[in-house]
Structures are given as C-alpha cells and as structure tokens.
Simulated assay, not measured.
Amino acid sequence: MRIYIVDDEDGKIQNIHEFVRTHFSTCKIEMFRSFQKGLRALLTDPPDALLLDMTMPTYEVGPREPGGRERRYAGREIIRQLNRKKMKIPVIVLTQYEQFEDGGKDVDLQTIKLELVENYPDIFVDAIYYNASDSRWMNELENLLAPILQEHDHE
C-alpha cells in the first residue's frame, strides 16, 4: 500500500513518517512539501491513502524560492480537485491549527471537518489536530488508517 504525506512542516512530516513506518511497516510512503507538487503527484500517480496538511505554500520552498503565497486552505482545495476528478483516495487531514481565518472570521477545526464530511463524503475520512508534544494524534491516526489498510488488503 502506498501513502502520500503532503505537508510543508519538516518536524511534522518526520514524526508522521516515522509513526506510519513503525505502525504500518508494509506501506510505501512518499512525501511532498507543497500544494503544486502534492496535487501533481496525486493526479498522475494516485496513492492508496493521503495524509494531508491544510495550510502549505503553493510551490516547493528552496534556497532561493520562498514557495509562493501560503495557501491557508490548500488541503481543502486538493480534496476538491480529487473529488472533481472522481478520485476516491481516502484523505486524513493532520493540522497544527485549531482555528482558521476565513473571510475575516475565525473558523474552528470542527467546523472545517463538518464541511469536508458534508461536501466530500467519499474521500474525506477525518481531521486530526496534530500537536508534537501530545501523542493523541498518533492514536487517532492509527485508528483511522488501520481500517483503510485492512480494506485495501482485502481488495
């Protein structure tokens, strides 16, 4: 089984990668650090599951490239594109933010989850609040990924 991690935060990516590698050792993991690279990879070579950040730069950040503008809802846009292309890749969002700003007002993670469940029920699995100093995200991720892997193994 192949899992993509699309996220721009180095420490978070490494923690998620290590967790998946340890708990789901048969999975092949690929990582992408921007909206454009992640979306391109998803559309050209779809994985079996996607672990997705909500906020990331448009392009890869490099030594002389700042990555373009930060896309506050890059994850939501990626899910929308997958849905538009009728790609049924299970998506789990992992975000370090409990609040998002949307059109001048604050929107909490629970509201985002409800919107994604309602609009993309065939793709969106759940959203997890990621905090490096708290292990709850690991339990949640394990509980969400295990059934996806089991279903994939029985296909």
Rank of each mutant, 00 (worst) to 15 (best):
N15C: 07
L116A: 02
I89Y: 06
H17E: 07
G104P: 06
V93W: 10
P90V: 13
G38W: 07
D106S: 15
F124L: 08
A132T: 06
Q36H: 10
D7W: 06
C27S: 13
N15W: 03
N131G: 01
K113G: 00
V93M: 15
V6E: 01
V107N: 03
V61E: 06
R21N: 03
D153I: 05
F24I: 08
R76F: 03
A49G: 10
Q110G: 04
Q150I: 06
K88D: 05
T44E: 09
D45A: 13
R72M: 12
Q150K: 14
T95L: 11
K12Q: 11
G103D: 10
D10W: 05
I148E: 00
L42Y: 06
A41V: 05
E77R: 11
S34G: 03
T111A: 13
M31K: 15
L114E: 10
Y120G: 03
D10L: 09
I123T: 11
L51K: 07
E101C: 07
L51R: 08
L42N: 04
L114N: 11
K28F: 05
E65S: 13
E77W: 05
D106E: 14
E151A: 09
Q81Y: 03
A41M: 05
E9R: 09
K37H: 06
M54R: 09
A146M: 10
M56D: 03
G103A: 11
E118P: 00
I3L: 11
E142M: 07
D53N: 13
M56P: 02
R21W: 00
T26F: 08
R64Y: 12
I79N: 02
N139V: 09
T26G: 03
G103H: 13
I79Y: 04
L116S: 01
D8I: 02
M1L: 09
G75S: 06
I89H: 04
P57E: 01
A132V: 10
T55P: 01
E18T: 13
F24N: 07
D108K: 13
E115F: 08
S133N: 14
Y129A: 08
E118G: 02
G68P: 07
L144F: 05
V91W: 08
E9K: 13
E101H: 11
K12Y: 04
G75V: 10
P121G: 02
T22A: 13
K85N: 05
C27G: 01
V91R: 09
T22L: 14
V93T: 09
E9I: 10
K113I: 12
F24C: 06
E77Q: 12
L109K: 15
P63I: 10
